[in-house]
Design a protein around this nucleic acid. Structure first.
Lengths: 207, 207
DNA sequence: CACTCATCTGAACGGTGTCAACATGATCTT
DNA sequence: AAGATCATGTTGACACCGTTCAGATGAGTG
């Protein structure tokens, strides 16, 4: 029942197949899109038979969840770094927002998969409840930016921000916004302007 | 090249098959979930061979777009009614938000399909640019609530609101929020509290 | 009536997720 | 060292999927 195993134990026949499968899944997802992400394609890419993955994941769903999990970790790191490198605590929130949106824009298929799988389970990703997670970082940044520290109010503010960022991430590249974007001098000003509408962002230092 | 045809012209063999197909698709979507929504299942449900739909839709995608289109119309009506029945212009915005969220909660599979198809086309639904659309209603409600009437600023505010509502709609039933919801006395107070965080909502009249 | 042509059917193709039966070989026990 | 164990991988099959194509059907038009 042990999970995946440690780093390089070079196990039985293939050599950490589960890892190879997840990597293959991620590559297919980024390069060929979600439509091409079939169990068989992943097995093909990893050089094994179509049935081999079933010794590591009970389902196609479970494989996809593993891929999504890596996505959540990467997103969490992007957020943590944005907070770490922010000039002032006041900048941190909008910098986090921009980092979040950049991640979604640079990994669109992965980002979408992440929310598809979490929605199917009607639960936040596991990482979202750990200390190093994106959620915790947003919450702390809120506190440092002077938000109401009451626990319930703080939870509401964090959720509100997260939802807004997610919605924006999914809609930001509608064609209809192109005109508005150029009128505002690019995509980042457009995004920052919308973030500012949520009332919690003050950031003006941009790059 | 004419679209679907009018109400009851009782055409060739089946009798407005395209309509029957869209209805079947919607029923399958609501009752059996998105995973069961196959072209063949829709044809089966409509009592027709698997190849028949191809005389009305060039693709499975095109069928799904037709289903999604009905969803956008229904959502637009829900928003229009919420605005119409709001007690004061100040209530309209939060009432619209609640109506939006209720629609998403009551038709989760349809709501998801709606955004899947629109995201694939990287374009807002057609309805979103018509006068009777949800977008226009939100924009007008914003004006009546005293928002900045500058056109660019107004567009930004509308987009910001729409994105926030969408993000909230997709995340609102994460298990992790259950505790917070009951602590606040139900789901609607929870939703209204989050909407209030977006700074544009004042509503307190609830039902 | 004969003709046309949109509409529907039947059968087929390659692709998919999944499973059961079998092969393989690393590790553990003796 | 030999043999047993058992996780791992393969082969082949099943049902279902989206899609296409040749042919049947039958409503409307001349």
């Amino acid at each position: 029942m042990r999970e995946t195993g440690n780093a390089h134990p070079r196990p039985y026949h293939h050599g950490d197949l589960s890892r190879a499968l997840v990597d293959a899944g991620r590559r297919i997802l980024e390069q060929e899109g979600a439509a091409a992400l079939s169990l068989r394609a992943v097995a093909r890419e990893a050089g094994v038979s179509p049935a081999a993955p079933y010794h590591h994941f009970k389902d196609k769903t479970e494989l996809l969840e593993a891929v999504a999990h890596e996505g959540w970790e990467a997103l969490g790191e992007a957020i943590a770094e944005a907070r770490r490198t922010a000039v002032t605590p006041g900048d941190a929130l909008s910098d986090i927002g921009i980092a979040y949106l950049r991640f979604a824009r640079e990994n669109p298929a992965l980002y979408r998969l992440m929310y598809d799988t979490t929605r199917d389970r009607t639960a936040m990703p596991q990482t979202a409840h750990e200390d190093e997670s994106g959620y915790a970082n947003v919450q702390q940044a809120l506190v440092e930016a002077g938000a109401n520290p009451d626990q319930q109010e703080l939870a509401l503010a964090t959720i509100a921000l997260w939802c807004a960022a997610h919605g924006l991430a999914e809609m930001a590249n509608f064609k209809e916004f192109a005109e508005l974007k150029t009128a505002m001098g690019g995509e980042e000003p457009f995004l920052r302007a919308i973030l500012r509408h949520y009332g919690v962002f003050h950031g003006h230092t941009t790059h």
